[in-house]
Design a protein around this nucleic acid. Structure first.
Length: 332
DNA sequence: TCGAGATGATGAG
DNA sequence: TCATCCTCTCGAT
């Protein structure tokens, strides 16, 4: 279920915890046994995220491509080095290189009871694993290392300190550098990867050529990378744009506005780990939004509820097999 | 205990 | 357009 922001955050986690480390690789579930055997004992040399895909480079030009799809998630456990921006976004930890934990994409109190860190599809922390002495003082004989395997783990990557478990990905495969390049070449621009000005022009020119509805184009990863169903609905509402308008009929300034909004929302998403799409929330509203997933959005997941702006009932319809939420009045 | 549903993508027809 | 794959959570029973 993760959209682009999650994948960039996962890449950061990998960058901090796995790059330049020799890893043990296994496939407890068995479905990636051959691939894991090839990765086992190699050193991670780099990580990059493009849209919803993540590429991990190992020595000898071997790459791992992972796409989480709707259900996939990475669970980090152990003595996890947390990105400073991830930590400070939550306000509980502020130093760089701090070790702590992330649960359901939120930084938990370092002395929290669970040290499972999950980014991707929402997950509840399920197991207790080793925690570092400096964060808990609880390190003892009870802490199993490596952590026990729970559920269907496609791929486990393990260093002396950190364990990353991959579950339910749509894609998990090894690639050559040429294959990685070919995969990336098929993807539309990603604001965090491509040159900003060029990326905007590329997006605008593609959208304004297409007869396809703008609501579908935003979900097309060859048009723009990283947008999923939540951001799609929210961006169209923020632009007061009817999702059914063909791309070529959407005024150029609106198309540019959509791109610039995506740049903003992606940056917020990567920093906070939340798909926060409502501007100017009061501290009280912010807390409510954090507590209740459905309070975070203008229209997403609000079918049958009154539009926050005009009071008209928000509608939901199927568009290319996905649910599309929008306000028929604001987005007329 | 069961089944629906979920922030995706792909391949066949 | 439809079926299929992937895994887990939550609400209904």
């Amino acid at each position: 279920m993760p959209e682009g922001h999650s994948v960039h955050r996962i890449a950061r986690q990998f960058d901090r915890n796995f790059v330049r480390k020799r890893v043990g690789a296994s496939s407890p579930q068995g479905r990636f046994a051959d691939g894991a055997a090839l990765l086992d004992g190699r050193t991670v040399t780099s990580v990059r995220a493009v849209g919803k895909q993540m590429f991990v480079e190992f020595d000898d030009d071997l790459w791992l491509r992972v796409h989480l799809g709707m259900y996939g998630a990475w669970d980090f456990a152990g003595d996890v080095l947390v990105d400073a921006t991830i930590a400070s976004a939550n306000g509980r930890m502020g130093q760089t290189n701090q070790r702590g934990t992330v649960v359901d994409d939120r930084v938990m109190d370092a002395a929290g009871e669970n040290s499972l860190s999950s980014i991707g599809a929402p997950r509840r922390a399920r197991v207790h694993v080793r925690m570092s002495e400096q964060t808990t003082g609880l390190g003892g004989d009870d802490d199993a290392w490596p952590p026990p395997v729970v559920g269907q783990v496609r791929l486990r990557l393990l260093t002396d300190e950190v364990c990353a478990d991959l579950r339910g990905p749509t894609a998990c495969q090894l690639q050559t550098p040429d294959e990685v390049a070919a995969t990336i070449a098929k993807l539309g621009p990603d604001p965090l990867v491509d040159d900003p000005a060029e990326a905007e022009e590329r997006f605008v020119s593609v959208v304004r050529r297409k007869p396809t509805a703008i609501g579908l184009l935003l979900m097309d990863q060859s048009v723009v990378s990283g947008i999923g169903n939540v951001y799609r609905a929210e961006m169209l509402f923020r632009a007061r744009q009817n999702p059914h308008t063909p791309g070529r009929d959407v005024p150029e300034d609106v198309v540019r506005e959509l791109w610039q909004d995506w740049v903003r929302l992606l940056a917020i998403g990567v920093e906070t780990g939340q798909m926060m799409t409502m501007d100017d929330l009061s501290p009280e509203q912010w807390r409510a939004a954090m507590a209740h997933r459905d309070d975070r959005h203008w229209v997403y997941h609000r079918a049958g509820l009154p539009c926050r702006v005009c009071g008209t009932t928000v509608v939901v319809e199927e568009a290319a097999g996905r649910k599309l939420y929008w306000c028929p009045r604001c987005q007329a």
